[in-house]
């Protein structure tokens, strides 16, 4: 049976203030987390493609119980199964450690045809996890997908449109594959009342590295410190003038003085 899988995580809301506290830790105060905004598109696409293939959908989060919120949101949207991987002492902020755990879970599940990622995570702001997982699995990677033209699970192939900086590329690849999708690929649905109730009751299984028989690599990166960005020392000049024309002329003068024109 077709099996489409996606990864997600909980992140602070994009409207939240995020800062570094006196101890040097990143905090967003009491603000609740949301499902990573980029993942709304991958969750929706996972539901759509699993239905299209007449099969199962699964969402996986790697890390602490913080990510249960994102998993429950995913279930409430309509994903069938949820799973969390947590390994004490593993530095899951390192993308190679993360992708080793992810690859272990995919191998353990054994029947996944298509993995769909959101473009990136708004917290760490990297989009390297999808590529590294594809590499570890030896699967084809299609990044920046703006449209799935057809996922033909019976024939084992996918045709998709990718958004590159220079234009749109249409590609065909064999399944299994890993893809990452862009905003705009679909209109993510809102969880309905029944979905939310069902998700609230769901027991989410937690797997450790031993459960998936993964020997974790050493973290290849170290985060040395977090800093608040320097304040933008800006004094605003509201351009004055008798009319719009005069204001426009003054602004152009200022921009020439600033040497940005």
């Amino acid at each position: 049976m077709t099996h489409v899988l996606t990864f997600t995580r909980s992140t602070p809301d994009t409207a939240a203030k995020v800062w570094v506290d006196d101890e040097g830790a990143v905090t967003w105060g009491e603000v609740a987390t949301v499902v990573n905004p980029w993942d709304e598109y991958s969750l929706e696409e996972t539901i759509v493609q699993a239905a299209h293939g007449g099969g199962e959908s699964t969402v996986v989060a790697i890390g602490s119980a913080l990510h249960n919120d994102a998993l429950k949101h995913s279930l409430a949207m309509g994903i069938k199964n949820a799973l969390r991987l947590e390994e004490a002492g593993a530095d899951c902020n390192d993308s190679l450690v993360w992708s080793a755990l992810a690859a272990g879970a995919i191998r353990k599940l054994g029947d996944v045809d298509l993995i769909i990622f959101g473009k990136e995570s708004v917290d760490v702001g990297t989009d390297q996890h999808s590529y590294q997982l594809a590499r570890r699995l030896g699967w084809t990677m299609l990044g920046y997908v703006s449209r799935i033209i057809d996922a033909d699970f019976a024939a084992g192939k996918i045709q998709a449109e990718r958004m590159l900086e220079q234009g749109k590329q249409t590609v065909t690849a064999a399944l299994p594959a890993v893809i990452s999708v862009m905003k705009g690929i679909n209109e993510p649905r809102y969880p309905n009342f029944l979905g939310i109730r069902k998700a609230a009751k769901a027991q989410i299984p937690v797997w450790s590295a031993a459960d998936i028989e993964v020997e974790l690599p050493k973290a290849a990166t170290t985060a040395l410190r977090f800093m608040n960005p320097p304040a933008r020392a800006v004094s605003t000049e509201i351009i004055a003038g008798a009319d719009v024309k005069e204001k426009a002329v003054t602004l152009v003068e200022r921009l020439f003085e600033e040497k940005v024109l």
């Binding site: 602070p12 994009t14 203030k17 995020v18 800062w19 570094v20 990143v26 708004v122 917290d123 760490v124 702001g125 050493k218 973290a219 290849a220 990166t221 170290t222 985060a223 040395l224 410190r225 977090f226 800093m227 608040n228 960005p229």
Partner: peptide, 18 residues
């Protein structure tokens, strides 16, 4: 050592590869 924005630039982090 690289300095990179995180949380869409709300925070900066210094990172190194081992």
């Amino acid at each position: 050592i690289g300095t990179r924005p995180a949380y869409a630039g709300k925070v900066l982090m210094e990172m190194t590869a081992n």
